[in-house]
């Protein structure tokens, strides 16, 4: 099992997932969010999309556990990167279907039931070459999501953690240097005693 201290430190990631860019409350109309991009960055064409998935989507999912969020990765390096937003109110207006809102157009079961998702997304954005923060701004603007503020005590804690990281990096370098020096000295001692190491 991972050491308890390591686990405890890892759990401070929870602050990361609670706060920061992406901590938004989506309005009730949003039924699904879907992201589509190529798994490689390819210059910086898909960097924003990938970072958006990796850094912001966990926060969004944490704040909106009921909204299905999915990602597909296509294999075409020249293909696009898209952000699809599905909403429940806009569908009857755009396409005159007889389905009551909230059943057919909600389409959240698509990945579970293996039936192809036929509903059209309400908004589709081309997000190739966009920065992840630009994608987030786009999403917030179009859906009218509420950006949640970080509580001051958690902000302070995050600040402390940042300092801790900086210090840890410094310590890591120091420790590594000392360790290497000791090893080198031990090696020299060994050589001096006439015990020829196998490698040399």
């Amino acid at each position: 099992m991972v050491h308890i201290l390591k686990r405890a430190r890892n759990l401070r990631q929870l602050l990361w997932i609670r706060n920061g860019p992406g901590a938004i409350q989506l309005p009730k109309e949003v039924t699904k969010i879907h992201l589509e991009f190529h798994p490689k960055l390819i210059g910086s064409a898909f960097r924003g999309a990938r970072h958006f998935w990796h850094e912001m989507m966990p926060r969004m999912k944490y704040r909106n556990p009921t909204v299905p969020m999915s990602v597909t990765r296509h294999k075409d390096p020249n293909g696009g990167a898209y952000l699809h937003i599905y909403t429940s109110t806009a569908t009857p207006a755009s396409s005159q279907t007889t389905n009551p809102p909230g059943t057919a157009n909600a389409s959240p079961e698509a990945s579970n039931t293996l039936t192809p998702d036929t509903t059209e997304p309400t908004h589709t954005f081309e997000i190739k070459t966009l920065h992840e923060s630009e994608i987030l701004d786009l999403l917030v603007e179009k859906t009218g999501a509420v950006v949640l503020r970080t509580p001051p005590e958690e902000a302070q804690e995050m600040e402390e953690f940042k300092e801790f990281e900086v210090r840890a990096e410094k310590d890591r370098i120091e420790v590594r240097e000392r360790l290497l020096r000791e090893r080198r000295e031990a090696q020299l001692l060994k050589l001096a005693r006439g015990e020829v190491p196998n490698a040399a």
Binding site: I4, R7, A8, L11, L14, I17, L35, W53, M57, P58, R59, M60, K61, Y62, P65, M69, S70, V71
Partner: peptide
């Protein structure tokens, strides 16, 4: 000393970490 979680809280976080 360590923070402990109820099942639902843990699942809430885990589902967010596994998004996409």
């Amino acid at each position: 000393e360590i923070e402990q979680f109820s099942l639902i809280d843990a699942m809430h976080y885990i589902r967010a970490f596994e998004v996409g």
